[in-house]
């Protein structure tokens, strides 16, 4: 239930583009938040990965924004990000203190799969040919992203067999 109130059957190309931009923007911000959480909680490797993901999302956002600018240079935005939370962005609870890069990548992979499912579902109701084309393209991109993340995952060494809990300090009481 990542979004509310989008009537895909009546979605125009302009609104669809804006929506796609918001989806990327949301994902970028969530990854930035995660990176910052990892930094404040001494989990630097995963912080680096989340920053990398934020960079990717920003790149996609910029590409879409450029397209939107060319197609509809003057038309105002009429959709909002209000009810859009985690189409492509990870759920707010997916980060963990001391998560390994492998765990961080797994989160990202799930997100790409989730985004694929979103576009796939939407495509079943979309009528507008232009929107259909855009969403088909975006759905395909998600496949590529999945492959990218999977390739990264394959490069990572396996996590070792030990749990951080068996070495780390106890949590601290603050009041």
């Amino acid at each position: 239930m990542a979004t509310r109130g989008i009537d895909f059957a009546r979605l125009s190309l302009k609104d669809a583009l804006d929506l796609a931009i918001f989806i990327e923007e949301e994902a970028k911000e969530r990854y930035e938040d995660f990176a910052s959480q990892m930094e404040t909680h001494h989990t630097p490797d995963s912080a680096r990965f989340y920053k990398f993901m934020a960079g990717n999302e920003e790149k996609h956002r910029a590409e879409l924004a450029e397209r939107r600018g060319k197609l509809f240079p003057k038309d105002p935005v009429t959709v909002s990000r209000q009810m859009l939370f985690d189409v492509e962005a990870p759920d707010t609870d997916e980060a963990r203190t001391f998560m390994t890069p492998r765990q961080a990548l797994t989160v990202a992979l799930r997100c790409e799969e989730k985004a694929w499912a979103f576009f796939d579902g939407a495509l079943k109701v979309i009528k507008d040919a232009g929107v259909k084309e855009l969403f088909t393209e975006l759905r395909q991109e998600e496949v590529e992203h999945q492959d990218l993340v999977k390739a990264e995952l394959a490069k990572l060494p396996a996590d070792d067999r030990f749990k951080t809990e068996d070495f780390e300090d106890e949590p601290v009481s603050h009041d």
Partner: peptide, 11 residues
Amino acid sequence: SFGSQIRGGES
């Protein structure tokens, strides 16, 4: 002595 995080702060 600890930092201000509950878990994963400096200690």
